[in-house]
Structure formats: C-alpha cells, structure tokens
C-alpha cells in the first residue's frame, strides 16, 4: 500500500471539511472582524442533530443516501437558526462595543452551546449506525472510500457555490461592500444588519454539513467534538489569511494534508517515539511556522491593522 498517496487522500478528505468550516470563521471575520469562537459548536450541533435523525431512521428500509440526506436537511436549518440567534442576541447588541467584548462573548456562547448539547444528548457519544455499505476503490495502491469521495465532492460543491454567490450575485457584492465599509454600504440602501445575519446563517449552514461529514467519516459524534475541530478550522482560516475566502479554502486543505502526512510518517521519523496520535500537533506547528514568516497568512493582506 502506498502510504504517501493514502495519506494525501485522507488529508484531502479532512482538509476539505476544515476548509468548509474555516469559511464560516473567515466570512464572519471579514464582515464584522469578530472571531466567532462558537462556530465549532455549530459543527457539533450539526453532527448531533443529524445523527439523531439518522439514528431514528436507521431501522427503516430507506436507502442509506436518503437517510443521510434527511439528517443534513434537518441539521442545516437547525444550525442556521442557532447561528442567527447567536448573532441576534449575543453579538448584535455589542456591535459598537470594544472588540474584546464580543470575543469573550463568543467564548461564552461556545461553552453554553456545549452544555446545552450535554443536556440534550448526554455525555455519551452518538455512533453512526452501520447503514452505509463500505464501498472502496483502489487508486495507485491507495484506497479511497465512497464516504471520502462524497465528502470531497460535497465540500467542493459548497466551496464553488459559496464563491459564485459572493462574487457573482448582488447579495454577494453587498456582503463584500459591507465588509469593506459598512457605513457607506448603508448609504447604498443595504440593510447591513440583514447582511450580517445572512453571513452568520450561511456560515452555520456550511458548518452543519461539515458536522455531518466529519461525523460520518469518524463514525462518531459527541458534545465536545466542536472545540478541537473549530480550533483547527480557525487555524486554517488564519493560515490562509483570515477574511479571505480563497485563503480559508487553501488553508483548510493544506492543514488537512499536512496533518495526515504528519500522522503517517511521524512514527518513522521519530523511531516510534511519537505515534500518529500526535497528529494534532502538526496543525498548530504549521500555523506557528506560517505566522512567523507571513503574519497575514498565505493569501491575506492588511490583517495587522484590522486585528
């Protein structure tokens, strides 16, 4: 088996999930310069809600694809509602406040959402029911599963869709205008409160799908899964240059690939002193390395005077 190719495939899978989550961080940052630390929790809620639906439907004779689709179709609106609500009641009242206030609030929201999830779903992880038949293909000595293909394609589709929306539609142009100068955007007749709420809703929708994907990939979902995933996706957004859509996608995929390669080779490199459970270290090592040499991220500009 070709380890290198295998780890690239695994990395692309995880990386595309990171990319989708990172887009949520970067969009919100781009529009109100807030790092929404509760974004990872939206991924978790997406996974938990979808798993509950999928678990309930697992006994039926419905085709597995439809069951997963049903999970997504319930998870997306739930996450959108949560994302909208957090913006409306927690961040909007702090619009004019010093930047630290919404940031601390975001951490608070993150803790609250985790505990709500703990109350709703308990401490025990939800397992993904064995409904999807294992399909796999051999590519040049490595194995790619049907789930991996589905994750990569779904992520790609969402990334392309989001990019088209932001760069080709009137609403997307209004989002970019608001992010550059909210006051002048208001003078154009743009209701910036609606644009900001919309940004949160779109980010939450992406997070929900990402939650279903990562949950399906690992076969498990639990109330605290959002923290580490969120931190990594946030790192990916910073890596690519926060506020920059292409940067978030690039950063996410890069992070996934580096992490997977690291996990695959760390044993060989360190004579088995460190095992693949150290894979999380790579994400943050790479983040530190990039920020030392390029503080604004790979594709970012002017982050210094914004942050």
């Amino acid at each position: 088996m070709d380890i290198f190719l295998q780890q690239i495939i695994n990395g692309l899978t995880l990386g595309s999930v990171y990319a989708v989550v990172a887009l949520g961080y970067t969009m919100v940052y781009g529009i109100i310069q807030l790092i929404n630390f509760a974004h990872g929790e939206l991924v978790m809620i997406g996974a938990m809600v979808a798993f509950s639906v999928i678990g309930a439907l697992a006994g039926t004779q419905l085709p597995p694809v439809l069951i997963v689709l049903a999970g997504i179709l319930v998870a997306v609106p739930v996450c959108m509602a949560v994302g909208y609500t957090m913006e409306r009641i927690a961040y909007r009242p702090l619009r004019g406040a010093p930047r630290l206030a919404p940031l601390i609030t975001a951490i608070g929201i993150s803790i609250i959402l985790q505990h709500v999830a703990l109350l709703v779903w308990s401490r025990n992880p939800l397992a993904f029911p064995q409904i999807i038949p294992l399909v796999s293909f051999n590519v040049g000595g490595a194995i790619i599963t049907g789930v991996q293909i589905a994750i990569i394609l779904t992520s790609l589709l969402m990334m392309v869709g989001l990019t088209l929306m932001v760069y080709r539609t009137k609403l997307g142009i209004a989002m970019r205008a608001t992010s550059q100068n909210p006051q002048v955007a208001g003078l154009m007749g743009i209701d910036i409160d609606r644009i900001i709420a919309f940004t949160f809703i779109v980010g939450a929708g992406l997070a929900a799908v990402a939650g279903v994907m990562v949950g399906t990939y690992y076969g498990i979902a639990h109330y605290s899964m959002g923290s580490l995933l969120g931190m990594k996706a946030f790192s990916a957004a910073v890596l690519g240059g926060i506020g920059n859509l292409a940067g978030a996608m690039l950063g996410g995929i890069l992070l996934g690939v580096v992490e997977a390669l690291g996990a695959g080779y760390i044993g060989d490199l360190t004579n088995n002193v460190f095992g693949s459970n150290y894979q999380d270290v790579f994400a943050f090592l790479m983040l530190i390395a990039v920020l030392v040499f390029r503080p604004s991220g790979l594709l970012g500009e002017r982050v210094g005077d914004r942050a």
Binding site: K170, I173, A177, Q180, V184, L187, M188, G189, I190
Partner: peptide, 29 residues
C-alpha cells in the same frame, strides 16, 4: 438604508468608494 429607498442619496466626504470592488460592482451597489 431606508432613506435611500425614499430617494435620498449622499455622496460622502472622501468619496467612500468600495476600493476592492470593481467600478461596475460599485455602480451595481
């Protein structure tokens, strides 16, 4: 934003163009 709908437009001091949008996108806004 409500006043714009009622036909009132301000060209602000210092122009306030959206520097990263194209000329056409600025006009579309």
């Amino acid at each position: 934003f409500e006043l714009v709908r009622r036909g009132l437009a301000l060209v602000p001091e210092g122009r306030g163009v959206f520097g990263q949008l194209t000329v056409a996108e600025n006009l579309a806004m």
